[in-house]
Design a protein around this nucleic acid. Structure first.
Length: 413
DNA sequence: TGTCCACCGGAAGAATAGGCCG
DNA sequence: CGGCCTATTCTTCCGGTGGACA
């Protein structure tokens, strides 16, 4: 991608920018194939996941025989290849079944990316061909109506659908907020279908989320379970080596850098995604610095950069009032809820926004606290009442940098 | 020992924004 | 269009809290 874009620009010549670009291009590249360093790039071999692949495949075998497999629950920490394996297996099954008049429709949604239950269902519906606003409006219908429409498409076309819901633990949150029992309908949808089938594959990072689930739902959702273990540092090392072979020009990654990279992401979480991303970013940094090889220092820099980027995107994805509130936390004279609320009200006045009530603000603070951008702690001050004190966990400069682009906040920075 | 601060956080329902249907 | 539906966000209301201070 990057490379293509630069080429397009460079072909237009004359500009001083192009000069720079030309120079950069003629400088040596460390990469052979950068694509491979995206975790989601699926190579044919997914290392060290043989058991899991086998289990997932086994539980989905009925699809080949035109019958409905059990619903499936997949557990594992982030970066353990859960989604990759599921997608790979389903892809292969789809491939085999393509010509025997038994099409499999694959639907994928990530519950974390949707703020509402409705949004999640719509996302799934869209993949079933309910694309137009008319067929499936993005708001306004009742949940059960959306559900009925999805079911009726499946029925009408006699589809065999596989719903893959990533981070399904998050869906429990969404459901519990609105009280509707969509989960139940989903897991039991087959009883309503005369033609076509519906198989649910839930992917979860949180091993404890079962406890929060309605037992009726649980029994039908986790007919089969596959647990993905964390990668060990050694395994991550091998995975990286494998990708390095394809992605980099030979001998451009120092052994020390490789070791550091697998250690940094492996020890704590066993997270291969992070390891691969880290390596890619480090490679890019090294290249920009015109270094011949990727060194330990580049890995460290990359780790910093990734941390910052993560925070920046998290900050930017907040709605306006949450942003104002975060700024409020930054600018407040103290860090108790009352002081933060005052500060927030002030910012509202400046930006001419209607201020929300303190109740709502405390709720927002708790929500932001969940994501880890701020930390809160309840303290009792005797006569001076009870309050919760909040602290920003990130650097104020990063917040400023992140919010700079938001026009509504321009005056505040 | 009792008071009382300053806010917590649950519950309920109003407000808003959209779609249906006659 | 008007009446009625739902989902989601926000407000209103309020009982509850733990310890410093009188």
């Amino acid at each position: 991608m990057d490379r293509e874009e630069t080429m397009v620009c460079a072909s237009m010549t004359k500009d001083p920018i192009d000069k720079l670009l030309d120079d950069a291009q003629s400088g040596k590249s460390l990469f052979k194939n950068r694509e491979v360093l995206h975790f989601t790039f699926i190579p044919d071999i997914i290392l060290h996941r043989e058991d899991e692949q086998k289990k997932v495949t086994q539980s989905l075998l009925p699809l080949l025989k035109k019958s409905r497999p059990s619903n499936l629950l997949v557990y594992g920490k982030p970066g353990t290849g859960k989604t990759l394996v599921v997608k790979k297996v389903l892809g292969k099954i789809q491939e085999r079944v393509k010509d025997n008049s038994f099409p499999i429709q694959l639907l994928y949604a990530n519950a974390k990316e949707e703020t509402t239950l409705y949004g999640l269902l719509v996302k799934l519906g869209r993949q079933l061909g309910l694309t137009s606003q008319k067929e499936l409006p993005s708001t306004g219908l009742s949940i059960s109506e959306v559900f009925n429409r999805i079911i009726s498409v499946i029925e009408k076309n006699g589809l065999n659908t596989v719903f893959v819901i990533d981070e399904i633990d998050y869906l429990v949150e969404l459901v519990s907020k609105s009280g509707k029992d969509v989960f139940y309908s989903l897991t039991r949808a087959n009883e309503r279908l005369k033609k076509g089938t519906l198989t649910l594959i839930g992917i979860s990072n949180d091993l404890t989320f079962k406890e929060r689930l309605d037992p009726r739902v649980l029994s039908s959702l986790s007919e089969e379970e596959v647990i993905f273990t964390n990668y060990t540092v050694g395994q991550i090392n091998e995975i990286l080596e494998e990708r390095i072979k394809v992605a980099f020009i030979p001998d451009t990654v120092d052994q020390a850098a490789l070791n550091l990279c697998s250690a940094m992401s492996g020890q704590e979480h066993g997270d291969a995604r992070r390891a691969i991303d880290l390596l890619r970013v480090a490679g890019e940094i090294a290249e920009r610095e015109q270094s011949d090889t990727v060194k330990e220092a580049h890995i460290r820099k990359a780790a910093l950069k990734m941390e910052e980027d993560k925070e920046t995107t998290a900050l930017n994805s907040y709605p306006l009032h949450e942003k104002l509130l975060i700024l409020g936390v930054m600018k407040a004279s103290g860090n108790t809820t009352g002081e933060i609320y005052q500060s927030y009200k002030n910012l509202c006045k400046i930006t001419r926004q209607k201020e929300l009530t303190q109740r709502r603000i405390t709720q927002m603070l708790s929500e932001i606290e969940m994501t880890g951008l701020i930390t809160g702690k309840i303290i009792h001050q005797g006569m001076h009442g009870r309050t919760k004190k909040f602290n920003l966990t990130l650097n104020a400069d990063i917040v400023k940098k992140a919010f700079k682009e938001d026009l509504a906040l321009e005056d505040l920075l």
